[in-house]
Design a protein around this nucleic acid. Structure first.
Length: 217
DNA sequence: AAGCCAATCAACCGCATGCAG
DNA sequence: GCTGCATGCGGTTGATTGGCT
């Protein structure tokens, strides 16, 4: 079966977007929305394919895009979520409001990946964990696993996990509100909600988080 | 000042997935 | 169930930028 091209190549422009093109795309979407990306460029008077327009909008022009450097908290979140989810950039981006999957992916390859490699070399005895690992050599892990399975606080660990990474799950019985939603509904500040779930040992918390997530996937 | 090289990031490409007919 | 279209996702590319010699 021959795959149909995403757009008619004749007359379609490629390469960097000009401010004029950006303006056309923004004003069109503000007026009409983006129900049909394929038809959008023609209707908006753009010599681009729909795919290019979608990418430009979602990665750059969207009004809720957060610009500027990644905060330490964001970097930490990306690192931990990457350990948890692998290269599922869109899933990671969902936990970082205002950041796009493309931005996170670039940041990972240009900054975090190298940093982690350096840290790994400096700490050769650290457990090498990945979501695909079939066995774990760490005594710590075994201890935590045992505790997790028997702990009466399993639910609490799951809640901590969800709050820490602002996760939502897709099944109703596992749904935990995002921390900002919790704050809004309870009238408390985000820091108050976080404090409520604070656990002293950061490393232990992280492993509880990993375990909690593994139960849903 | 010029050339080279590495880092960065916007944009592209192709495959996967969901959905309607 | 099959087909084709629209969209999403992740890997990759290539233009640009900045630092170094």
């Amino acid at each position: 079966m021959v795959r149909t091209p995403c757009c008619e190549n004749m007359g379609v422009k490629k390469g960097p977007w000009t401010p004029e093109e950006d303006e056309l795309l923004i004003s069109y979407i503000h007026k009409h929305g983006h129900n049909n990306w394929r038809a959008l460029p023609k209707q908006a008077g753009l010599l681009r394919c729909g795919k290019s327009c979608r990418l430009r909008w979602t990665n750059y022009l969207r009004p809720d895009i957060k610009r500027g450097n990644f905060t330490f908290e964001e970097q930490d979140t990306i690192t931990k979520l990457h350990q948890l989810l692998g290269n599922r950039w869109s899933a990671i981006a969902m936990r970082l409001p205002g950041r796009t999957d493309n931005e996170i992916k670039n940041f990972w390859h240009t900054h975090l990946k190298k940093r982690l490699q350096v840290e790994e070399e400096q700490r050769p005895n650290l457990m090498n964990f990945s979501p695909q690992c079939s066995s774990y050599q760490s005594t710590n892990y075994t201890t935590i696993m045992t505790n997790f399975q028997t702990s009466p606080h399993e639910k609490e660990a799951v809640t901590i996990f969800s709050n820490q990474f602002m996760l939502t799950t897709t099944t109703d019985h596992h749904y935990v509100p995002r921390i900002d939603d919790q704050a809004q509904s309870s009238g408390k500040s985000i820091s108050e909600i976080k404090d409520h779930h604070e656990v002293g040992d950061e490393n232990m918390t992280f492993w509880y988080n990993v375990l909690a997530q593994s139960r849903y996937t």
